[in-house]
Simulated assay, not measured.
Amino acid sequence: MTDSPSTTDRFAFTPTHDEAARLGFVGALKKYVNFDVETALQERFDDRIAPAYTQSHGQAPTNRKEAVAAAADDRLFQLWASLTWHSQNMMWDTVQLTTDRIIDDRIATFRALRDRAEAGGSIKLNDEVVVRAPVKTTEIHRQPGGYWRETRTDDIEAGLNYTGTVEMYRQAKGMSTGKSATNDTFGRFVAGVAQRRAPDLTPTSVLDMGCGTGEQTHAYKHLYPEAEVHGLDSARPFVRYAHGAAESAGVGIHFHELDAAETGFADESFDFITSIIMFHETSAAQVPRILKECWRLLKPGGLVLHLDVPYHAHRIPLVKQVTNDWQVRHNGEPFWTGFVDLDMKAELEKAGFDPASAFDDYEAVGPAAYFVFGGRKA
């Protein structure tokens, strides 16, 4: 395969045959670790780890802290951790091969699209934005350099690398479309949830917070073509990448480098505000600030709907809590367990949402489910 993206998909992550084969191997390895090894670890926890803890402590492990202590010295758990660590390294090393080969072309394409504004979208960068922890202080997902690192003028490397990992996971799950910059399935799912929760609402102004590379933001413009759609993120390379990808796909979206807790938009600017897996990459300090900003920005009759990880302790087994705890401490997920320990309905009410309209719930996606929370403004 040669690097030849079409005119409507000039921002795609386009590995060669050999690069794609290596990505396929890494994706298959991660799928094996995340499913087969974790399943075996669940069985081992029930059959050996928990009984051994009960014998030595006089009671079974009942919470994450006790389960972590019980599993720490188990050889299968240590194997899972080692495989997770090294497969993550392999993933970033592998996507970097493709990125290094195509980065100059993609930056040139970004500049041309930015200057021509072909699809009618826009990009606004903001030198006043303060990138906050943990995005500033942590390599989230252990992405080398983190989301916000820039090493060249008009850099989009972080966005391109991130897109490559998303495509790798899709390929491993048999979901790849080959159009890595324009797959907006998750955004369409969120819009469907919004339609069920606010059937009377046809959004005219949409804000996608923490939009990252922006591919899911495309869904809102496709589904609400008359709406003005905005996406924001605090990582400048992601904002650049999101703008280039949208323009290359002919989707007119306005992207901003902004802090979700302090956007600068006028009061009551949007009737639909959303995010996808943003909150668990913020912090306990940021959560109430972001929710208050959502309340301020929401028009009367509008809907706030955020989607995030569904790993609350009452819904997942202890061994999953053990592996999640390891991800927090060793794999660039510093607020994962902190987020799921929060009472988001209470946080919404503190931010101004009416208890009668505020919600935190779960929405099914095939055999899985995601955590959704938000509310409406009367």
Rank of each mutant, 00 (worst) to 15 (best):
E150V: 05
Q59R: 00
F110I: 06
M175R: 15
G146E: 10
T153M: 13
T163Y: 06
N89K: 15
P61L: 07
Y169K: 03
E150I: 03
D155V: 03
K179Y: 14
A71M: 04
A81V: 10
D104L: 13
M90T: 03
T99F: 04
A72Q: 11
T99L: 08
I102D: 05
G174I: 05
D154N: 03
R116Y: 00
A172Q: 12
W80K: 02
G145D: 05
D93C: 04
E128T: 15
M91D: 06
T99G: 11
D104W: 05
R101L: 14
N126T: 14
K173N: 11
A158S: 12
W148I: 00
D127N: 14
Q78W: 02
N89G: 12
A70W: 09
Q78E: 12
Q96C: 14
Q55F: 01
I140S: 09
A133W: 05
V68L: 09
R106G: 02
V95S: 00
Q96G: 11
D105S: 02
N89D: 15
T84K: 09
M175W: 06
A70K: 11
M168V: 08
G120I: 07
I102W: 04
S176Y: 08
Y147K: 01
M168F: 10
L97Q: 05
G159F: 05
A52I: 00
G164Q: 01
A133D: 13
D105L: 08
W85Q: 13
Q88I: 05
S180H: 00
A52V: 11
E157R: 11
Q96D: 15
G146H: 01
D100T: 03
P61V: 06
I102F: 02
L125W: 06
